[in-house]
Design a protein around this nucleic acid. Structure first.
Ligand code: MN
Ligand code: MN
Ligand code: ZN
Ligand code: ZN
Lengths: 143, 143
DNA sequence: TTCTTATATAGGAATCATTCTTATCTAAGA
DNA sequence: TCTTAGATAAGAATGATTCCTATATAAGAA
């Protein structure tokens, strides 16, 4: 997913955030890297053009972006956090053997789940969001 | 879920593992604590009756138990790992505000998902497992 | 039962991701 | 242009986890 510089600024503004070069670079990195980068991958990416951005700033900004709903955290059973700039409803396919996490979009499935849980009407909690963790193995080796 | 001492030993043996007091205590802790304890909760629990077990041993043993499929890791968007002794297929309800993670069992849903993905027949990967992350808020305050 | 040894553990140092602290800087409204 | 609330740099600190290695032990063999 490629966004123009202006689109990135606009997203920051719309979220009520001050536009700084650091925030711009980091949000752009999460968009450009795709496939759920770790903070370290973001750091390596931005350092090329912005060698001065501090490590702590990357973590701070990622938190701010998550709080502002410009980015999501992706749940993992590894130590390092992963981030996702795709805010549209989608699910995640976890490779059983590597750290690869692929997106899975399926509106038909989302409708199915929604109507299933509406019918089920769980009593003691209100569902905000449902994400499938699909664990498996890729046949090919592509990204 | 309460298991007898013999049942725990048997599980370790069946997995081809040497039965040690450390492994016994740690596996028992994960069963007894329930609700997806962290390593730290396991440590606090076993220290009461086994003050000598080293912290590193708890992490080692938890890894061994995961490799031997006696315990699962639970995906989280927090730093600390969580563990689960319930190996039957089930889903997880994540509280949006706290670290509470509840189990959700639903065979009807599992069948629905299975037939949905059988029909869908995804081309480039083989599904091993599907777990729902249900995020929401609990109405009550119970465990 | 004792012996043997491959494997497991204790204890503590080390690592790594992340957070914290504080002096300095700057985005953006007045 | 001025002002200042809020953001960042730099590096120390923290917390979860891993690593190292000398010692201990489970469990099969004798
Ligand atoms: Mn940590
Ligand atoms: Mn960590
Ligand atoms: Zn995604
Ligand atoms: Zn569970």
């Amino acid at each position: 997913m490629k966004l123009s510089s202006e689109q990135i600024n606009q997203k920051l503004k719309d979220a009520g955030l001050r536009v700084t070069p650091q925030r711009h670079a980091i949000l752009e990195a999460v968009y450009t890297l795709g496939n759920h980068p770790s903070a370290e991958q973001v750091i390596d990416y931005i350092r090329v053009n912005h060698p001065g951005i501090a490590t702590g700033t990357v973590y701070n900004v990622l938190d701010v972006l998550v709080d502002s709903r410009l980015v999501k955290r992706v749940k993992t059973d590894k130590d390092a956090m992963r981030y996702d700039a795709i805010m549209n409803r989608h699910h995640h396919i976890y490779c059983a053997e590597t750290d690869r996490i692929e997106d899975y979009f399926d509106e038909e499935l989302d409708d199915l789940l929604q109507s299933y849980f509406r019918k089920k009407n769980l009593q003691n909690f209100k569902i905000e969001d449902i994400i499938l963790q699909i664990k498996g193995n890729f046949n090919d080796n592509s990204e």
